[in-house]
């Protein structure tokens, strides 16, 4: 369903992605882990066409999207929902207006039908009754839930999560993980999440990929990655720094 071929991306002299080959099957839940600044979010943004690669290709259901124009990409993006690290809610709109955004823009449904769908989407993320609040009035976890409701209201086939639990306390992080699993099971969506939170990766991923030095260094089930003896994987999973290499 999603495939990248020899994906390369540099920012100035720094090569962030150095030939990433990735394949995600329909209905699969894949978590991409890796060090901070290692290119995980950059890779995720390539999948939905927010960034164009320097070399290589991105295929969505066999269709190459890497070199499409912004207008051509609009149709492809209808298959995706995306939850951003900071939720990226439109702060001039209320919660209900944020969640209803795509449906309002399309103009196919009546106001009452849109209102019903907004209520359903907010109920799905356990946020009923917050319709009239502004994003500034919500906590970090609530903002992420609204972001998720906005991403799933139009029933996309693929949901992308950029650091879904970063900045949240462990209890709220767990509730977000449960929500991601619930969305995957109820809506039968393909899930791709990037995170450096190993607890979260274990809970939501059926397969975990590790991005290291711009390439996929490891791919396996959560059990395989936690039992791996590969020094790079081991150090990351267990949070062990290398004294020879500065980590800041």
């Amino acid at each position: 369903m999603i495939e990248t071929r020899r994906l390369k991306k540099s920012f100035g002299p720094q090569r962030v992605l150095d030939g990433v080959d990735l394949r995600v099957e329909k209905g699969e839940s894949v978590v991409i882990i890796g060090r901070s600044g290692g290119g995980k979010s950059i890779l995720l943004k390539h999948l939905i066409g927010l960034l164009s690669p320097d070399e290589g290709d991105v295929l969505i259901e066999g269709e190459s999207v890497a070199w499409m124009s912004e207008r051509q990409l609009l149709g492809v993006r209808r298959k995706f929902g995306m939850l951003f690290q900071g939720a990226a809610l439109f702060d001039s709109l209320t919660v209900a207006e944020n969640v209803a955004f795509v449906l309002q823009r399309e103009g196919r449904l009546t106001e009452s039908e849109i209102g019903k769908k907004v209520d359903e989407a907010l109920a799905m993320v356990d946020l009923g009754g917050t319709q009239d609040k502004k994003p500034a009035e919500l906590s970090g976890g609530m903002r992420k839930r609204v972001g998720l409701a906005r991403a799933i209201i139009y029933q996309p086939q693929i949901v992308l999560y950029d650091e879904p639990t970063t900045g949240l306390d462990p209890i709220v992080a767990d509730s977000i993980d449960q929500l991601i699993v619930r969305v995957r099971e109820r809506l039968e969506v393909t899930t791709v999440a990037v995170t450096h939170d190993m607890r979260s990766a274990r809970r939501i991923g059926q397969r975990i990929l590790m991005l290291h030095q711009g390439r996929i260094h490891f791919s396996g089930t959560p059990e395989e990655i936690f039992q791996s003896k590969d020094p790079v994987v081991y150090r990351f999973v267990n949070g062990v720094s290398d004294p020879k290499e500065p980590h800041f």
Binding site: K45, R78, F101
Partner: peptide, 14 residues
């Protein structure tokens, strides 16, 4: 800077 423009793009809006 708060990724709201990227969010617009992911919501199929130019």
């Amino acid at each position: 800077v708060t990724e709201q423009i990227d969010a617009l793009r992911t919501l199929a809006t130019h």
